[in-house]
Amino acid sequence: MGESGRYLYAVTRDVDPQALRDVPALSGGTLEVLEHDEFLAVVSTVDLDEYGEEALRVNLEKLEWLEKAAQTHHAVIEAVSDLGPVAPMRLATIFLDDDSLNRRLDEWRHALTQVLDRVAGRLEWSVKIIAANGAPGASGTRDPDNRPASGADYLRQRKAAVEQRSQRESESQQEAHRIHEVLSARAVATRVLQPQDPRLTGHHGTMVLNAAYLVEAAEGTAFAEEAASCAEAQPHLEVDVKGPWPPYSFAMLEQR
């Protein structure tokens, strides 16, 4: 084993470190909980041959390595989130030693405290709304009974189809917005995220809403039920509800 570093998964407080004893750490290491004033830093030792700057540049691009690292990192954060408030770190936040890590916690003390206060007792729910693209025959397919008589006629038909599609899209946007308002009323905070790329998710249609909701842990079930009933009321919209997540989307620091 070469030089080693300290990989920081998350910062928390008021949890029993023993409860994390059996959670697997990266690279077969052991999870440790370091106490630093009111904070508990969840860390493990990693080999810099695997997690140094050069190695990371290579490893992060290997899907198998990345998948394992991402899932282990996420599983640790979920385990912490089950116990108490969690301020999750981005993947691959690594220090050379504990002194350096503690100095950084001191530097970010105020912001970390704010994040932990904000997320304590709350969890994140993700809601994505997808509108199907167009009705059959609206574009692309050619209806033999409705053949354009001329080039100009054809262009008129296409123009009408495009306008119809854009109107349907704007109606879907408005419905998604109404659902977002209903769900926001049940949330402590909300964040509207970038719509995901259909080429990444494989969904068909337009993602008209990708939002995260910070919800009181005790109200999670009611939130999910509300989302499901919104979905039922709008059968032509696909409403994808996932949760509860650790509050990743609400643990971002103000200074960015």
Partner: peptide
């Protein structure tokens, strides 16, 4: 999540 610059 939180983006704090580490040593790496």
């Amino acid at each position: 999540g939180i983006i704090i610059a580490g040593d790496i």
